[in-house]
Design a protein around this nucleic acid. Structure first.
Lengths: 69, 69
DNA sequence: ACTTTATGTCAAGTATATTTTACAAATAAT
DNA sequence: ATTATTTGTAAAATATACTTGACATAAAGT
């Protein structure tokens, strides 16, 4: 399922998928796939994304909308 | 570098590496390698581990001792 | 209309996470 | 001392994260 938290955190920083990819040292397609929710990134990449966006793992990668508190 | 937070959270639940591996559906060696710090698990596995141990991603996988606040 | 930028997606390749099998050493129990 | 359990580690195989290159579309700018 889609990672809308990531998508919105990225938008809040006015970064394109390509920009964020470059900052994190991965390809644009990888960021796209993560937002799309196709897959299961490594935790190091998640951390790099979080740092680039000023968020934590819990904020961007914990639980998916339905069972959030 | 070693993930001592994981090791200690596991110990607090009195689970062996094998026990935790089974709960998470991975091999014992994978858990061992993560605690040892050799590698970079996928975020889905991290989440499974967190749920098994009653912790969150930030508690077990965010920042490594040195630059913690 | 044209050009640029951002996104979505696909197929083939490479890198690496994870498994399996296996063995050795340490700890706890009896 | 010996048996069982846990841990550390290694090599070969498999699954999958991630890359590269490419093409299509939509939105924004000129």
């Amino acid at each position: 399922m889609k990672n809308l938290k990531l998508k919105s955190a990225r938008a809040a920083k006015d970064l394109s998928q390509g920009d964020l990819a470059q900052i994190c040292g991965v390809s644009r397609q990888t960021i796209n796939a993560i937002e799309k929710g196709d897959y299961n990134p490594t935790v190091n990449l998640c951390i790099a994304i979080c740092k680039a966006l000023g968020k934590t793992l819990d904020e961007l990668f914990w639980e998916d909308e339905n069972d959030e508190e």
